[in-house]
Nucleic acid binder design. Structure first.
Lengths: 226, 226
DNA sequence: AAATCAATGTCAAAAAACTGTCAAAACCCA
DNA sequence: TGGGTTTTGACAGTTTTTTGACATTGATTT
């Protein structure tokens, strides 16, 4: 497990090093610029980030990292500030956990472990599956140079399918994501899937929406032999 | 965003409801059993879990949920206990965050938001028994390169058999898992077992469904001498 | 050993549920 | 109002699930 510790206080750094070193591979940065550089260049499992840093503020670093990193490691913020406003700021900047000094090293460790468990967030503004690309921001699905606009519901459905791929996603889940507790009382979803399929096939993509009878739908790349 | 709150203290519950209700869809459970049931049956974005619960301990619930849920929602533990040992227990059970009472509702909210951001953990669970492999995610049973899709009921039955193996599981238990309190009034289960056996034997697997007369069914690897 | 009985296996056919298709109606917004 | 979006409803085709009728099995009793 690789952990990046961005902290300018040498004492704290040494403590952390002593405590975590046997179990983790640690990198250290002493200022914000260096920290961001390391964070973006390497693939860490967790980043421990002090908020008060020379050169570049922790909040700033966090925002920059979350927007620029392709594979976002979870960030644990470390700070002496304990007001709710500070925490809000930190989480709003993209932190995943927040620990106020002074803290027990063991608590730091278990929180690092907890953070490392979850899969990392992929920073993809556009989704893709096989040869297809879909941009949820403007609801356009495209294959190479040809593309088609989708309407709202179709966009949501395609996004859900792409996020779930290659697994199936149940009609109930899709329905709930679109309509919440009160779905339309007729098979509107069926119609949307139908239309989505027509659009996909007009793009000549190799992806298609498979139905997993009574379990849901799945976006899948057609195998070559069909 | 859907949040499940498992908390037996009605005051705290009401507070949480008041504070979060406008923004989130909340479900409540008042005891551990009901909480686990809801957690497994629905797809929540975050689960808020009090540790001291009637019927089933929070730690226990957490472990059970993490091992049984296909798609694990992050769990935020809520408790009056503030020792490191308690936190370690909680995180070891699979918690993703830990908040000690009393807490500020705003902090609860920002931590819920932070948890909801991260992608959920998929429980990659393919079962096997002898030479057979069964993937409940797509209901496909396979032996080496050959495989067969199962329909819903067959899938549930095979999963139960595999989970129980090498022990037998009673018809009543299977029936209850499939139909709940109101099973069909004819021997539908017999027919499903029959069909499942046909599928298994078409795969030439060495596993077979044994019947333990008046006790139930059992999945077993045939011994070589038959 | 034969008779009996309940539990189970076998199978075809009926019933129910699910899905695809599409045109038309309802809705919404500029 | 007009045009795109979304829902409705009807129908057909398919798969899944249940039903029911009968055969078999194994244990128990006579």
């Amino acid at each position: 497990m690789r952990v990046l510790v961005i902290e300018d206080n040498l004492d704290i750094q040494a403590n952390i090093a002593d405590f975590l070193e046997p179990d983790y591979v640690l990198d250290f940065a002493y200022n914000g610029d260096h920290g961001l550089e390391l964070a973006l260049a390497n693939d860490y499992d967790v980043i421990v980030l002090d908020l008060m840093l020379p050169r570049r503020d922790g909040i700033d670093l966090c925002k920059a990292y979350k927007s620029e990193a392709n594979l976002q490691a979870p960030i644990l913020m470390l700070t002496a500030r304990d007001t709710l406003e500070d925490k809000e700021l930190g989480f709003a900047a993209g932190a995943d956990d927040y620990l106020t000094k002074p803290f027990a090293l063991r608590e730091l460790k278990i929180r690092i472990d907890a953070l490392a468990k979850r899969p990392k967030i992929k920073n993809a503004s556009s989704l893709n599956c096989g040869d297809l690309t879909f941009d949820p921001a403007d609801n356009i699905v495209s294959l190479g140079s040809s593309s088609k606009p989708l309407n709202n519901k179709e966009g949501v459905i395609l996004r859900l399918l792409m996020e779930a791929a290659p697994n199936a996603i149940s009609s109930e889940t899709i329905s709930y994501r679109i309509w919440g507790e009160e779905p339309p009382n007729s098979g509107a979803l069926r119609t949307h899937i139908y239309n989505l399929r027509k659009i996909l096939s007009s793009l000549k993509t190799r992806c298609e929406i498979e139905t997993d009878r009574s379990r849901g739908y799945r976006l899948k790349e057609r195998s070559s032999d069909e």
